[in-house]
Design a protein around this nucleic acid. Structure first.
Ligand SMILES: Nc1ncnc2c1ncn2[C@@H]1O[C@H](COP(=O)(O)OP(=O)(O)OP(=O)(O)O)[C@@H](O)[C@H]1O
Length: 907
DNA sequence: TCTAGAGTTATTTTT
DNA sequence: TAACTCTAGA
């Protein structure tokens, strides 16, 4: 039985394989143009390639060495902009065009969906549409999910069916909250599922495959990686139980969380001969981008897929490792790869083709602040000019206005909007930016914005679809059973649960309520009553009627599933449950109705799930029926694909028209990894924001280094022009917080202009103070707050030592010693703690701030004094002096409002 | 069961 | 500040 299935699944591959066995013509003689940085793998096979092959054109020797290296484990280590991704694409092209590898045998793994999409574009350009379509390119999670969708039933005792759902953060937290309240009797109010979830997640990524491990085992694993937790009584006493309850819940709901996707895929490959055989045949060549950010389970997935076949090619840069907080291990690329993949070769690339020399120099200076960096050199190929500007503004609103204006200016001078990015450390910074872009009428896209799918009306609607797809999904059922209100309150729900608990168990578990209600598991096949008699369910007549109503709607919708594509089905759901009327009645009803329509249109649009098809590569992971051109998939499978898409692809802007849209991209520094833009503006270059410092936690050296790397990643996204923006003050928690410049700014300044005073800078070294920008602004204030006053501010607040040699000061600061930036920090601490204390302290604190600021900018001090005198709230005062004639009100309904992410299709 | 008003909470970073 | 949750009262 099993082997029959296997051979059926493998059949298409066998066919392709036969086809591809014809050797490609015209292989040239072996040429070894490349030597530098190329350590030959143990294999003695010589690289074979045509020196004139188009995909090698313009490549340097090291790049070619990597691309044409013999098929054997290979890793490419190189700094930003050195062409790692380009080499990876070149390698794929080489495999297909020169070695005759069928594209469907190639698996390309990236870290984010954006990167996957970009990779796909590059592949299309290099190997053509048809070939690219057959390559599997996706994130670890999407690839793992696809594997499980096909084969999870082969995981013995795992209790999941192929119609599993993926629980997102909100879903898992709601489960945990429930456990905390029901099992641990915690106060509903106090319970903090976030911490517990992060512990569970950390434990799961600390282990190569959590499948089958119980809570105690997981607790031990967690303590092994985080020794500080060993003495934590919570981990010892509660965590194991919590974990087991959590797992039981997911299992009963036929659900997996994000970490489970990876673990289960690893377990699948380890335990199932059939699956192992299948995927090793399927993906004979595995290539991984950004390998430095792989976690243990991701690494194990690669190993399980490719360790024996040894056809693995990874690229990465330890200096760009920015995900250790979620379990990424640099050791994977540093050492483990070499020891696990025998005879692994290494190629180093050291030329930066992306950025101008000035930008590279600034970036190198910053990464130099990391203690644990790669010894790799990075030489800029492009000459440098005045490409780096430091800009200081009064607050985040001005900063945002500046960014919008600068983007518009760049666009006017010919830079495509989509080649401009505004980066920030935290999502919360995106809001004023977005408002400014709307005000300025500059088209923009907020990338990685999950807001759409976390909206209540969208979650509700998706929950309907999920229950229709998988009736065991208890979290979703609880969401929808009384939404819109249909008189099934908590009391009724409790009775229903009691009823379901009394039904015969299925698969060794009590029946989830959804299954009991919707799958008629209580009935014998020939009965066709909607539900058992009311008395059997312990319900009063009214409640019984309400429940019957719900069940009958769901039954009918369930029948619609098989004949509808996701769009039509969603529309049908909306119609049957009167969702639009329900939503319209809530506040902001019109807007919400718009979002509902948006979801329908996303569901209807086959290209909305484009990257999912891509993951499938038109190949076997999706079943035997494909290879056909893209079409709407109907039925259960189509619904599953759609649901998977919205769980896995975090952002709504996966639709092609948004992706390709000519719009400025707003995103976090993390999200920008691997991308490049002509012009980059990094906002919030302030101490404690970059590098980020959380109020409570004391940051250790490793965390600081990661902040350094993150900023480094941000800097190196810029090809031609880089703006570093900071604001003197910023609203946080509704309070005004004053901030010093990021210490990294001083590092950059010093590297580009040396320890010279600000005046010398203007004479025209690397930094362009952007004074013009300031002066052409309608607000004359910015001139006063340009980078000159910034430098002045830096010099004074960090002391003379820093002024003549910022770096020693920085080192002290980083080491936590006093004398460096500690002075400035003490100043700020005083400010903030003064504000914390009651009334009088507030005033005193503010005054102190102004004085301190006033020292370096008399004009600003005068302005503040005027504001103080005006006695308004600080916000009003700010507004009064702001060039906001076109303010929020004007922009809100403005016809030229920029295309925001989630509304694109509403018209 | 629903609502309005009070009260509290929030901000790293992502799949 | 603003967005969300909870509670009391209808
Ligand atoms: N040999 C080359 N000649 C010209 N341009 C090149 C060459 N190699 C790479 N580039 C260009 O340099 C830029 C950076 O390449 P790529 O994105 O592949 O770098 P990367 O190493 O992946 O960067 P990162 O680590 O920042 O993701 C791209 O625009 C690419 O086209």
């Amino acid at each position: 039985m099993a082997s029959h299935r296997a051979s059926r699944l493998l059949e298409p591959f066998a066919r392709r394989l036969r086809l591809s066995n014809r050797a490609p013509p015209r292989w040239g003689p072996v040429q070894r143009r490349a030597a530098a940085g190329f350590s030959s793998p143990a294999h003695s096979a010589e690289p074979m390639f045509r020196a004139d092959a188009p995909h090698l054109e313009g490549m340097n020797d090291e790049q070619i060495a990597a691309i044409v290296a013999p098929v054997a484990p290979m890793k490419v280590l190189a700094g930003p902009g050195s062409g790692k991704t380009r080499v990876l694409v070149g390698r794929v092209t080489h495999l297909i065009n020169e070695l005759g590898v069928p594209p469907s045998h190639i698996l390309c793994i990236t870290f984010t969906n954006k990167a996957a999409r970009e990779m796909r574009e590059r592949l299309v350009a290099s190997v053509g549409e048809e070939n690219a379509r057959q390559i599997t390119a996706g994130t670890f999670h999407s690839v793992a999910s696809r594997m499980l969708r096909k084969h999870v039933h082969l995981l013995d005792g795992y209790g999941r069916g192929n119609d599993f759902v993926i629980y997102d953060e909100a879903d898992t937290k709601s489960i945990i909250r429930k456990i905390m309240v029901d099992v641990f009797m915690e106060d509903k109010k106090k319970a903090d599922p976030a911490l517990a979830k992060s512990r569970i997640s950390a434990a799961k990524s600390a282990v190569d495959a959590c499948v089958g491990m119980d809570g105690r085992r997981m607790a031990r694993a967690l303590c092994d990686t985080r020794p500080s937790l060993k003495r934590d009584p919570y981990i010892r006493d509660q965590f194991p139980r919590l974990y087991d309850e959590y797992e039981a819940n997911l299992r009963s709901s036929n659900a997996l969380d994000f970490d489970d996707l990876l673990s289960a895929a690893v377990a699948l490959l380890r335990t199932s001969e059939e699956a192992r055989l299948f995927y090793r045949q399927r993906w004979r060549h595995v290539l991984v981008d950004e390998f430095q950010d792989t976690s243990l389970s991701q690494y194990e997935l690669i190993r399980a897929l490719a360790a024996e076949t040894a056809r693995v090619f990874v690229v990465g840069d330890v200096d760009q490792a920015i995900y250790s907080w979620r379990g990424a291990e640099v050791a994977n690329i540093r050492t483990k790869f070499d020891s696990d993949f025998a005879g692994a070769g290494t190629v180093l690339l050291t030329k930066n083709y992306r950025s101008t020399a000035t930008i590279v120099k600034a970036a190198q200076a910053v990464i130099g602040e990391s203690r644990d960096r790669s010894p790799l050199e990075l030489d800029a190929v492009r000459p440098g000019g005045k490409d780096v500007a430091v800009v200081a503004t009064e607050d985040e609103i001005e900063e945002a206005d500046f960014a919008a204006r600068e983007a518009a200016r760049a666009a006017r001078s010919g830079v495509p909007l989509k080649d401009i990015a505004v980066l920030y450390r935290t999502h919360s910074q995106s809001r004023p930016l977005e408002e400014a872009f709307i005000r300025a009428g500059v088209p923009h896209v907020v990338v990685g914005d999950t807001a759409f799918y976390t909206r209540k009306e969208i979650k509700d609607l998706v929950a309907y679809l999920r229950v229709l797809f998988n009736s065991r999904d208890t979290v979703s059922l609880q969401r929808i059973i009384n939404t819109p209100p249909r008189k099934i309150g908590p009391g009724t729900l409790e009775k229903l649960e009691a009823w379901a608990a009394g039904l015969p168990w299925v698969d060794g578990m009590p029946q989830p309520l959804g299954m009991a209600l919707l799958d008629r598991t209580w009935s014998t096949p020939d009965q066709d009553d909607l539900l058992p008699p009311a008395a059997d369910m312990g319900l009063a007549a009214g409640a019984y009627k309400a429940v019957s109503g719900f069940v009958s709607v769901m039954r009918e919708l369930g029948e619609a599933v098989e004949v509808s594509d996701p769009g039509a089905l969603t529309e049908e759901v909306v119609r049957r449950i009167g969702f639009e009327e329900y939503v319209a009645d809530m506040e902001n009803g019109d807007e919400r109705v718009g979002y509902v329509k948006e979801l329908v249109s996303i569901a209807s649009d086959p290209s909305a799930v484009e990257s999912l098809d891509g993951v499938d590569g038109g190949g076997a992971a999706g079943g035997g029926d494909n290879g056909a051109t893209k079409r709407k998939s109907t039925g259960h499978a189509g619904l599953g694909e759609f649901l998977e898409g919205i769980s896995l692809l975090m952002s709504a802007e996966t639709r092609s028209e948004d992706e390709g849209a000519d719009a400025v991209k707003l995103m976090t520094l993390h999200a920008a990894k691997g991308l490049e833009f002509d012009t980059v503006l990094i906002t919030g270059c302030e101490d404690e924001l970059i590098p980020f410092k959380r109020g409570d936690a004391s940051s250790d050296a490793a965390e600081h280094d990661e902040e350094v790397r993150l900023f480094y990643v941000g800097l190196t996204r810029a090809k031609r022009k880089l703006f570093l923006c900071r604001a003197f003050k910023r609203q946080r928690f509704g309070r005004t917080v004053y901030a010093d410049p990021s210490p990294f700014l001083e590092v950059i300044r010093e590297s580009l202009v040396g320890g010279k005073p600000p005046q010398a800078r203007r004479a025209g070294m690397g930094i362009n103070p952007a004074e013009d920008d300031a002066n052409t602004d309608e607000s004359p204030r910015r001139a006063a707050l340009g980078s000159d006053s910034l430098a002045e501010h830096l010099r004074r607040t960090t002391g003379a030592k820093a002024a003549t040699g910022g770096s020693p000061a920085f080192r002290k600061y980083a080491a936590g010693e006093s004398g460096g930036y500690a002075k400035a920090n003490a100043w700020k601490r005083r400010m903030n703690s003064a504000r914390e204390g009651g009334g009088g302290g507030v005033l005193g604190g503010r005054r102190g701030t102004r004085e301190a600021m006033g020292e370096d900018d008399p004009e600003a001090a005068a302005r503040r004094a005027a504001r103080r005198a005006s006695k308004g709230s600080s916000r009003d005062a700010t507004r009064a002096t702001k060039p906001r004639a076109t303010g929020v009100a004007g922009a809100a309904g403005g016809p030229r409002a920029a295309p925001r992410r989630s509304r694109g299709k509403i018209e």
